[in-house]
Design a protein around this nucleic acid. Structure first.
Length: 459
RNA sequence: GCCCCGUUCGUCUAGCCAGGCCUAGGACACAUGGUUUUCAUCCAUGCGACAGGGGUUCGAAUCCCCUACGGGGUACCA
């Protein structure tokens, strides 16, 4: 069998959509699994809508997700160039083939592909006009995901626009032939186009590749109906980057959009993903985007990260929100990050979760304030505790713990009587990381200062 | 309008092609309880679905038909 060759063929007309990324990922996974070649081809035939920014964002997005291509921009190989805007001579050659076979004609300055079959005129309800139709033989699409799909084209279609640019259907097929593509893996929105493409393959006398049409990614029902659009939350790859999501987690999540292994495993290394991925196991029905699942997966990856990597990303996130600036106390930062790592599911929540470690200007939760500080005896608790903590020689968890316990014993209370009050006094909230480690990390000075301030403030 | 594709817990899905092992399994979310003397972690339990109708069959989530609903296409966009 010939080597598998797949292509990812985006057109750079806007921000990179999560569905686009999934198409790229599935092509990449299939190529890697089959020991094939992953081709990146830029379909930039629509000059009005293409932008350089969109192209850059696309490339950055692929790199961010760890999807490298074997042939494409920067890796020309034997089948370049990989920008359709630079392949006009190739399209001219192929157009000539169709001309020689008498399969094209010109009308209104555009070149049409001529279907084979008896012609007749019929009123078309969609076009609201009489149009010429062709009684063609149906075409069978061999789809790995859907099985055999039978469709029939009944109207000639444009392959070269009147401005001289070749059309999508034409260049898509020509390039798949010229680049020796064996499998076309793309969104279901192309399934209806595929009969046009097969007509073209047939006209060229080339056996069509195998097809696999991926289900659409639909909107969360709360957001409305239809397929996910670029305006929907979570739709753009750039958004995940900006929000400091873990690229591996995003990739993992995207892989699960329409695909899953039989045994239900959900967290994969890229190697596992590659070896387990099968086009046959792709779901037929539309998948719906679920942000909570994305966050959950992100959390799994965050928990599993080596602490150094965690600190690095955490630092970026904290710096961006202005909580820290160079030079940073690496040890302190690392200690704080360790506390956060098992608690929060996204780096975008880090500044909110950990602000009080780095600044005295942290938010005060009114709800927590009412719950904790308005209680009878709250200030007494702080006043009796303060000297005990101040007297500690070593500011360690163990020491702090025994200070609390001693005091609790004397007052015949549980240490729990102090915890929420102290937590609130030093952090402005009643939730957060593990209590004692948090106090240790904050340091004696900060803790004492904040307790004193709380006593003054709530007296 | 016409053509094509689809429809299992709120969500992602397993099971469907090769009908019985399905009183339909897992995950996220949610709820309750537990641990962690705090907590957004962790653990346990619970909640919860075969779109509807007909047919075939001893037996249907699984096969067939109809309906409903959803999606895509029907462009000199890709």
């Amino acid at each position: 069998m010939n080597q598998v060759r797949v292509r990812f063929a985006p057109s750079p007309t806007g921000s990179t959509h999560i569905g686009t990324a999934r198409t790229a990922l599935f092509n990449w996974l299939f190529a890697r699994k089959e020991g094939g070649v992953f081709v990146l081809r830029i379909e930039d035939t629509d000059k009005e809508r293409n932008t350089q920014e969109a192209l850059e964002e696309l490339i950055d997005g692929l790199k961010w997700l760890g999807l490298d291509w074997d042939e494409g921009p920067g890796k020309e190989g034997d089948f370049g160039p990989h920008f359709q805007s630079k392949r006009n001579d190739i399209y001219a050659q192929y157009l000539k083939i169709l001309k020689d076979k008498d399969r094209v004609y010109e009308k209104d300055g555009a070149i049409y592909f001529k279907l084979e079959g008896d012609r007749f005129t019929e009123y078309d309800d969609y076009l609201k006009a009489d149009v010429e139709k062709v009684k063609t033989q149906p075409v069978v699409i061999e789809d790995i995901i859907r099985g055999k799909v039978t469709r029939r084209e009944d109207r000639d279609f444009v392959i070269q626009r009147s401005n001289g640019d070749p059309s999508f259907h034409f260049v898509n097929v020509v390039d798949d032939i010229a680049m020796k593509i064996t499998h076309v893996i793309r969104g279901e929105d192309h399934l209806s186009n595929t009969s046009k493409h097969i007509e073209l393959f047939n006209a060229f006398g080339v056996e069509p590749p195998k097809f696999a049409h991926l289900p659409m990614i639909l909107k969360n029902p709360k957001e409305g109906k239809g397929k996910m659009s670029k305006r929907d939350k979570g739709a753009l790859i750039s958004e995940y980057r900006e929000r400091n999501f873990i690229p591996e987690a995003v990739r993992n999540f995207i892989a699960l959009l329409g695909w899953s292994p039989k045994d239900g495993q959900e967290v994969f290394t890229i190697e596992e993903l590659t070896s387990r991925f099968r086009l046959e196991d792709v779901q037929k029905g539309g998948a719906r985007f679920d942000e909570q699942k994305m966050s959950h997966l992100n959390f799994e990856y965050m928990k599993a990260m080596p602490i150094q990597a965690y600190v690095q990303i955490g630092k970026r996130s904290l710096a961006k929100s202005g909580l820290i600036e160079e030079p940073v106390d690496k040890n302190y930062l690392t200690a704080v990050m360790k506390l956060c790592q098992e608690k929060i599911d996204s780096f975008e929540n880090l500044p909110g979760f950990a602000s009080y470690f780095f600044s005295d200007q942290y938010a005060i939760s009114e709800k927590a304030e009412n719950k904790v500080m308005k209680k009878e005896g709250a200030i007494d608790r702080l006043e009796e505790l303060l000297p005990r903590l101040a007297a500690l020689q070593n500011w360690t968890q163990t020491e702090i713990d025994s200070a609390f316990n001693q005091l609790a014993d004397e007052k015949q209370l549980k240490p729990f009587a102090w915890y929420p009050i102290v937590r609130f006094s030093v952090s402005g909230t009643n939730s957060g990381p593990d209590f004692l480690p948090m106090l240790e990390a904050l340091g004696k000075e900060r803790v004492l200062n904040r307790l004193e301030m709380a006593i003054t403030k709530y007296h």
